[in-house]
Deep mutational scan, measured.
Amino acid sequence: AVCQRCQARFSPAERIVNSNGELYHEHCFVCAQCFRPFPEGLFYEFEGRKYCEHDFQML
């Protein structure tokens, strides 16, 4: 399997985020606008991209 964002493979010891069947490295699972991790894992999706609450409100 490969990361949805960076397309790199996962190492066996690595923590992986699964979002609706899409797999991400922990450091790749970030807001599409500000590139920060999601507070408490909370995000909003718009047109296939994931956003933090602040950036989602700015759309």
Rank of each mutant, 00 (worst) to 15 (best):
A1Q: 05
A1G: 08
A1W: 04
V2G: 15
V2C: 05
V2K: 13
V2R: 12
C3Y: 00
Q4F: 08
R5Q: 14
R5F: 04
A8Q: 15
A8K: 15
A8F: 11
R9P: 13
R9C: 08
R9L: 09
F10W: 03
S11K: 11
P12R: 07
E14R: 02
E14Q: 09
R15N: 07
I16A: 09
I16H: 06
V17Y: 05
N18Y: 02
S19M: 08
S19K: 07
S19F: 06
S19C: 09
S19Q: 10
N20D: 15
N20F: 04
G21N: 10
G21S: 11
E22P: 04
E22A: 14
E22Q: 15
L23I: 14
L23K: 12
L23Q: 15
L23A: 12
Y24D: 03
Y24G: 06
H25K: 00
E26P: 05
E26W: 02
H27Y: 12
C28A: 05
C28L: 00
F29P: 13
F29G: 11
F29E: 04
F29A: 15
F29Y: 07
V30H: 08
C31E: 02
Q33H: 15
C34T: 00
C34G: 02
C34R: 02
C34Q: 02
F35L: 13
R36L: 07
R36T: 05
R36V: 04
R36A: 07
R36N: 08
P37M: 07
P37T: 08
P37Y: 08
P37G: 04
P37F: 07
P37H: 03
P37W: 04
F38M: 06
F38T: 09
P39C: 12
P39G: 08
P39T: 10
P39Y: 04
E40Q: 09
E40I: 01
G41I: 01
G41N: 13
G41Q: 14
L42Y: 02
L42M: 13
L42A: 13
F43W: 15
F43N: 04
F43P: 11
F43L: 08
F43K: 04
Y44H: 13
Y44M: 09
Y44L: 06
F46T: 04
F46H: 14
E47L: 06
E47K: 05
E47P: 01
E47G: 10
G48R: 10
G48P: 02
G48S: 11
G48Q: 06
R49A: 10
R49W: 05
R49D: 03
R49S: 12
R49L: 07
K50F: 05
K50D: 03
Y51S: 00
Y51M: 14
C52M: 02
C52Y: 03
E53A: 06
E53C: 04
E53Q: 07
E53Y: 06
H54K: 14
H54A: 14
H54L: 11
H54G: 13
D55S: 02
D55P: 01
F56N: 13
Q57M: 11
Q57W: 05
M58R: 14
M58W: 10
L59I: 14
L59T: 08
L59V: 13
